[in-house]
Computed example of a mutant assay.
Amino acid sequence: MGQAQSPKQNLAGNDAIKKIKELAEAARTCFFTTKSESGESHSRPMSLQEVDENGVLWFLSAIDSNKDREIKNEDYVELYFMNNSSYEYTFIKGEATVSQDRALIEKYWDSFANAWFDGKDDPRISVIGVKAIDGYYYETKENKAVAMAKMLFAAVTGSKNEDGGVEGELKV
């Protein structure tokens, strides 16, 4: 028996930005992947500060980190957001920039960052902006319990009952 597929809903422009904002801000944390000079991928968890109206994802970082150095060498990055409690997954490809603009640091500073920095005036603080280019998303239309029940029913009966999800491409 074939596997049921979720309905496709590809999004572009402002609709894609709204979906990125909705899903990424709900997940809050992602694997942030950069490339080293030798071409190796490096991933680390990062906490999202905001997705702005232009589709830029903002993160606090440290100017002396490998991540910041790798972005200065290669601005292409990939972000993997997972909100397992809601069965929402988002993959974003984008171009990153590193800044030490005081206004951006002030805007995105939160007390959680004190774990890594000596206050918001720490000279090591940087802000990374990732301009989303495109990506892919998957989300359930119903709550986790309903989606899980549908998947379990399909597994037990062998039916093609889909899990109530929707997925599609994101083109900013």
Rank of each mutant, 00 (worst) to 15 (best):
Q3V: 10
Q5A: 09
S6W: 04
P7T: 07
P7L: 11
D15R: 11
I17Y: 02
I20S: 06
I20P: 02
I20W: 07
K21D: 08
L23N: 01
A27E: 01
A27Q: 14
C30W: 08
F32P: 09
E37P: 14
E37L: 06
S41Q: 12
P45L: 06
E50L: 13
V51Q: 08
D52R: 15
G55K: 00
G55N: 11
L57S: 06
I63H: 05
N66D: 14
K67D: 07
R69H: 14
K72E: 15
K72S: 05
E74A: 04
L79R: 02
N83V: 07
E88L: 01
E88R: 07
E95R: 07
E95H: 12
Q100I: 02
Y108E: 01
Y108C: 02
Y108D: 00
W109K: 09
D110R: 03
F112Q: 12
A113L: 07
A115H: 07
A115S: 11
F117M: 05
D118P: 07
D118S: 15
D118F: 05
P123T: 06
P123N: 14
I125T: 00
V127M: 06
V130I: 01
A132G: 06
I133D: 15
G135P: 10
Y137S: 14
Y137A: 10
K141P: 02
K144Q: 10
A145R: 11
A145Y: 02
A149M: 14
M151A: 15
M151W: 12
M151I: 14
V156Q: 09
T157Q: 11
G158T: 03
G158Q: 01
S159Q: 01
E162R: 00
G165T: 05
G168P: 12
L170P: 08
L170G: 03
K171A: 15
